[in-house]
């Protein structure tokens, strides 16, 4: 299996979907969109099968969003229970927004992130 992240025009393969348990998230390092550095992205595997990706770091106080609890719409930061809408990046508890990254599951089951 391929385990290094590979940058391409279509995006970055970060993991096999099977490596993210349903309903959970994992954080991955991917290149920034301008290609000058790396950033961390939290990728979520929703129970209904779809995936979403946002910045891995909560803007409120640096919490690890990939460790948060999710449903089909929101993620709850584990540190102070702030919430963000995974579709828009807007906070539903009054915090600054997070960036939403492109993400999809390739036919081979790979999760591919397109950095925003």
């Amino acid at each position: 299996m391929t385990t290094t992240t590979t940058a391409s025009a279509a995006g970055v393969r970060v993991a096999a979907l099977a490596e993210i348990p349903p309903g959970e998230g994992r954080a991955y390092a991917v290149p920034t969109s301008d290609g000058t550095g790396m950033q961390q992205v939290a990728v979520f595997h929703h129970r209904d099968g779809h995936v979403s990706a946002v910045d891995a770091v909560c803007p409120h106080s640096g919490g690890p969003l990939a460790d948060g609890q999710i449903d089909s719409c929101v993620v709850i930061c584990p540190l102070h229970l702030n919430t963000w809408d995974l579709r828009t990046g807007e906070s539903t508890s009054g915090q600054d927004p997070v960036r939403v990254h492109g993400v999809e599951v390739a036919p081979d089951g790979s999760v591919v992130v397109t950095p925003a």
């Binding site: 490596e19 348990p21 954080a27 640096g62």
Partner: peptide, 13 residues
């Protein structure tokens, strides 16, 4: 589950 205790290198910030 796979990756239960693995994480990309902390710290996030």
């Amino acid at each position: 589950a796979p990756g239960r205790f693995s994480a990309p290198a902390l710290p996030l910030i």
